[in-house]
Amino acid sequence: MSALSQRREPASVRHSAKVIDGALAVLTAVIFVAVALAAGVRSPWDGPVPVIPLALFLGALLFVRRRWPMTVLLLSIAAIFAYHLPAPQSPPGWIWPIWAAYFTAAATPRVRWVAAIGVAQLVYSAVDFRWVIDRNMTHYLIHTVGEALLLAFIIGAGLLYAASLRWRDRLRETDGRVRAAEERLRVAQEVHDTVAHTLAVVGVHLNVAADTLEGVPAEAAAALRLAQDVRNRAMADLAALIDVLRTSPTGTAPQPDLASLGALVADARATGLDVTLDERGDPSAVPATCAVAVYRVVQEALSNTLKHSGATTAEVTVAYQPDSVSVEVVDNGHGTPGGAGIREGHGLAGMRERVSALGGTLTAGPVPGGFAVKACLPLADSSP
């Protein structure tokens, strides 16, 4: 089966292909009859092989050229031979009446066979047309060389068309791989943000429970209950994410919104970290993609504060402006254990990639008296 017919195309493309085949069929039949009449055929219905039935046969074959290209080519050549053989002085034309069949077959992997068949047909036509040599050598050369050049052009066009189809398929495959890689990255970011924050908060509560288990059992029990609540919410988020991935591969739920910032800060505050949240402006105009990015930046910044900085206070400021949203998380810690230089791990890298994808900027580093994470996201480039 032809490479052209093996591709699964949308319905609109298949409809366009049928329209093109119909147009080629009509064009082939009309031009063949017109040339025959212009060349001296008195009646298109007379002769051993009448012109009109032959023209209709050649046109009808083009409706199945995509499905059986070699069969259509061979039947078309046979029809041309049947037309020329009974009448040695029939109107010239061995290649051009079946150019569409040649083109279609040349776009298949059997192009070498197509070229061999074409050369054989040209040789035979040159011999068959030899009676013109004595009368008009120029006419003979124009006919023979012209049809040879036409065959070469048709086969070359078929090869170029097949190459363009292969290039389109490779481009489509590459685009699919890129989309899959982007999707994996988004999922990895969602899982990392959820798990990292949960482990940080739960870890703090477990440390509190371990320290107070013997002296203040009630406080230890409260810490364990908070850790369990945070864990349950994280499990629900992960379950929702997995469910969406199973049913809709393009989704990356759960998708937190700006209203969830309060719960995020409350979780961090429950660990003993003194966290304040200051929201300025109207958040109603913030698109969903930008809202998720804001939430994740705050979540990752607070997670790093809990895990690494040794901070006791943190300030979260979110400013909603007409054309952008700015986020700032400042704590009084030292950023990394022992005050070492910044090492950009998966969390910080994920924040930077998420913000950059929306056209924003992110900085993270020491400030006087602590450590700060700052991000600015434009609203115009973050619409879903």
Rank of each mutant, 00 (worst) to 15 (best):
G365Y: 06
A266S: 09
R172Q: 11
F153A: 14
A380V: 00
A23T: 15
E315M: 09
V114E: 05
L171G: 13
S16H: 07
G335A: 04
A25Q: 04
L54T: 06
Y83T: 05
V119Y: 08
E279R: 08
Q321H: 08
T138D: 08
G359W: 00
G272V: 06
T336N: 06
A293D: 07
E9P: 02
A148T: 12
H197V: 05
S356E: 14
V230N: 09
W131Y: 11
A234E: 01
A293N: 07
R67M: 13
V30C: 14
Q321I: 03
G22D: 15
A364I: 09
G146R: 14
R172V: 11
D46I: 05
F57D: 01
G339E: 06
L122G: 11
V64S: 12
T305F: 04
P88Y: 04
D267K: 06
R130A: 14
C376N: 11
D257S: 06
A311Y: 04
S284N: 04
P322G: 12
G339Y: 10
V355S: 00
K307P: 00
I95R: 00
D274N: 12
V329S: 03
T194N: 15
A210H: 13
E147V: 09
V19N: 03
A227P: 03
R135A: 13
H197T: 07
T250Y: 12
G341R: 09
A293L: 11
G251W: 01
R65A: 08
A270V: 00
R14Y: 04
A188T: 15
D237G: 08
W131L: 05
R177M: 10
E353S: 12
L238V: 10
P69E: 10
V127Y: 14
G47S: 11
L160T: 10
A157Y: 14
A36M: 08
A82G: 15
L150N: 06
D381S: 06
N207F: 10
A220P: 07
A380K: 00
L302S: 08
